[in-house]
Design a protein around this nucleic acid. Sequence first.
DNA 1: TGTCCAATTCAACAAGCGTTGAATTATGTG
DNA 2: CACATAATTCAACGCTTGTTGAATTGGACA
Lengths: 227, 227
Amino acid sequence: MTAASPSKSRGPKPTKVDPDQLLDAAQAVFAEAGLQAASLRAIARRAGCDPALIYYHFDSKEALFAALLQRRFPGVLKDVERLAEASDLRPTAQRLWEVLLIYHRHLSQDPGIRSLVRGEIAKGAEGITGLIEGQMRPVVTAIRRVFEQGLERGELRPGLHPMLATFFLVKMQLEILDVAPVMLPRFMDLPPEEAVVAGMRAWFDLFWRGVARDPSAPLPPLPDPIV
Amino acid sequence: MTAASPSKSRGPKPTKVDPDQLLDAAQAVFAEAGLQAASLRAIARRAGCDPALIYYHFDSKEALFAALLQRRFPGVLKDVERLAEASDLRPTAQRLWEVLLIYHRHLSQDPGIRSLVRGEIAKGAEGITGLIEGQMRPVVTAIRRVFEQGLERGELRPGLHPMLATFFLVKMQLEILDVAPVMLPRFMDLPPEEAVVAGMRAWFDLFWRGVARDPSAPLPPLPDPIV
DNA sequence: TGTCCAATTCAACAAGCGTTGAATTATGTG
DNA sequence: CACATAATTCAACGCTTGTTGAATTGGACA
């Protein structure tokens, strides 16, 4: 029982499914199932090919996931780094709000990456630690610079720890993108589409009053996220 | 090869491993691996028994997990409900801080439950929705009452939405318990043991300035969590 | 002593997983 | 037209998983 009947139709045309399509499929499946539970067979099914093909383009399941991160993070980093330039003299409130918008723009379509980053971090990020750190640290550092500049300009309250503030801002934004659409409609009277924006805005109002030097001063007009 | 050599020592003494010990083992394994990845064999190994024994005490893996939740939530609810009594006239800041302490007290030893609740919520909580809702809603409602009382007493800023505030407070507390010990030492110079407390305190300072009617008023003295 | 019963183990099941090696095909190039 | 080659599939491997049915044990009770 080593070799069976070789009769079915076999090989196909060249370049029917390129690596990028595989990444799209992987993203969708990871998003629904999480890293552990997402199976290569499900990803292949989604992409309309054989599981073995994944191994032609990627070394392993983990490498596939790594490629997925590598595809998204540079865009976030580029936007955040432009925002963090010292020459940007807009009000700090506006710039911090912009951080949320960047996350929203890049990651709102991509629950897989969010929940994965979140999940892997929470469990100690064994295995892909290096990758996450390499991709995440520059983003985090850039945001931190915005807080430091805000402190120098006297727009944030003196005792504020820029790293902790960064941590709270980013973490809560990820949470809102993930959890708000599920939870807020359940506990409040909000349709899921509105829940994210309402949650973002309410969270930022609260956050800003927490970090501002003068919490009673009115916020500058902030643009709405494109939904 | 249907029946093998029946020679080993088989059955044992009565009540060697009771359901509670199984729950302890399950909790530990769930904590390390998450709901999906935790295997019944690993749980049984931890408890020092056969995997089949789990099915003697529980209907399925999911039922085991449900029992785990059922064991912890009532304690949280009891404490939170006592805190939410309208006769409690302590400053709202102090009562809200107390909410964090309750979570810390009941869940800090129990990362499994936290990450599970978090994970299941994030992915839509299919399967155990009813259970989570049944256990969680009364807790959330009680905390909300504290915010409503704070609003009535004029200690919170008038526009504040009590449900959103509850959501932010609880969500961020869960995040801090989970993520701070992993992330803060990595981005700041803090040993893991101190990271949680420092994170809790910094988060609450920020949060309170965000919700307080008079953010510049000094906070009442708040007790430290017992670490 | 014999019998019942709750507690426990054993052995096996079907299914799903990540992964690999060999076979197949379609195309571009000489 | 032949050939090399990149893209794809097939079939299988060894492993782990949740779950089950039958067998076994040891104490309680008559």
